[in-house]
Simulated scan of single mutants.
Amino acid sequence: MDNSSISAGERIIAVVQQMVRERSITRPVSSNDSLAEAGMTSLDAVRLVLLVEDEFNIEIPVNELTLANFRSISTISLLVTKLASLT
């Protein structure tokens, strides 16, 4: 699938929605919702990091692997945008 016309935020939403479905989380998750409060675990967070790196063909530096950067879809989108601007 060609993702060039889809925004980073929309791509991250798709990745998170995939994880939510796989985990059978029934609570809707919006862009600013805490992913932890939605039911995602620390293991889910690790998987999410890997999925985001794969989706955007980036490597997230260790110093950016913080709860603040992976709190919500919005914070992940900001991180991806920041990292993309550095390349």
Rank of each mutant, 00 (worst) to 15 (best):
L43R: 14
T87M: 12
P28E: 08
E10I: 05
D33I: 07
E59W: 09
E55Y: 06
T81W: 00
M40N: 02
P61L: 00
A8W: 05
D54N: 10
N3F: 07
I76S: 04
S5E: 13
I60C: 05
L86A: 13
S74K: 10
V52Y: 10
R27L: 10
A38T: 06
I60A: 06
G39E: 00
R23I: 05
S77Q: 12
Q17N: 15
R21T: 15
D2C: 05
E55H: 01
M19E: 11
I12G: 00
D33Q: 01
I76M: 12
V29I: 15
E64A: 14
A38P: 02
E55C: 01
E64Q: 15
V62Y: 14
S24C: 10
N57M: 11
S42E: 05
S31K: 13
A8Q: 09
T75N: 08
T41R: 02
S5V: 12
L43P: 11
N63D: 15
S72N: 08
Q17P: 01
S34Q: 01
D2V: 07
T66S: 09
R27C: 13
T41H: 03
Q18N: 13
A84H: 08
E37N: 12
L67N: 13
I73V: 09
N63E: 15
E55N: 01
V52M: 09
V15Y: 05
N57V: 08
E53A: 07
S31T: 14
E10W: 04
M1R: 12
V16N: 10
M40F: 15
S72Q: 01
A68V: 13
K82S: 13
L51W: 07
Q17S: 14
A84V: 05
K82R: 15
S85L: 04
A45K: 13
V20L: 08
V62S: 14
Q17W: 03
I58H: 03
D54M: 05
Q18F: 06
V20A: 10
N32K: 12
